[in-house]
Design a protein around this nucleic acid. Sequence first.
DNA 1: ATGTCGATTTAC
DNA 2: TAAATCGACATC
Length: 193
Amino acid sequence: MPRLRKLSRKFYDVPSIQLAPALLGTTLVHRLPDGTELRARIVETEAYCGTQDLASHASKGRTARTEVMFGQAGRAYVYLIYGMYQMLNVVAGKTQPGEAEAVLIRAAEPLDDWDADLSGPGKLAREMQITRTYNTIDLTGGVLFFLERTGSPHIVKTPRVGVDYAKHWKDELLRFCDADSDAVSKPRPPKPN
DNA sequence: ATGTCGATTTAC
DNA sequence: TAAATCGACATC
């Protein structure tokens, strides 16, 4: 097995609609303080497309919370939702100055004989021990990072989950899933025959 | 200062 | 179908 390379700044510095599918099949690595690693293969992501996207927090403008999304690509945006779950996002590149794009990491398959249910963004962050303290962390560093894709995932697109409030944006096909994975969250896209 | 609501999950 | 649980944001 060739050693996998860590995803670079350049990889992240593209629009979210491009980054989201590109992250499928990559490996998310969390190196814990004691040196052990939690690793998982990404199987589901969602693109959040800037200040015009009513489903994105960035549509509220530049605030203390959303500030990181307006900044450098390749950093993490981690926030608390429903008072109990953390969401891990990757800050993407910008289509134009003053924009703010990000990709929500929604599901993954545990690697290295690690037994965990990572089929949903809240569960993924919880099981991988990713919390708000990692907000703004640089994903090109040595604590939380992605490794280049292995294999060729069969990518299918669906509307995003839990954004019915986002007017017409709720119907955009901005959720990307590995059709062959059983770890994709509900609602699961129809599996090809 | 107070009220609303959420990029979810789980239980009834 | 609804509760859990709390911070961000809007409004008063």
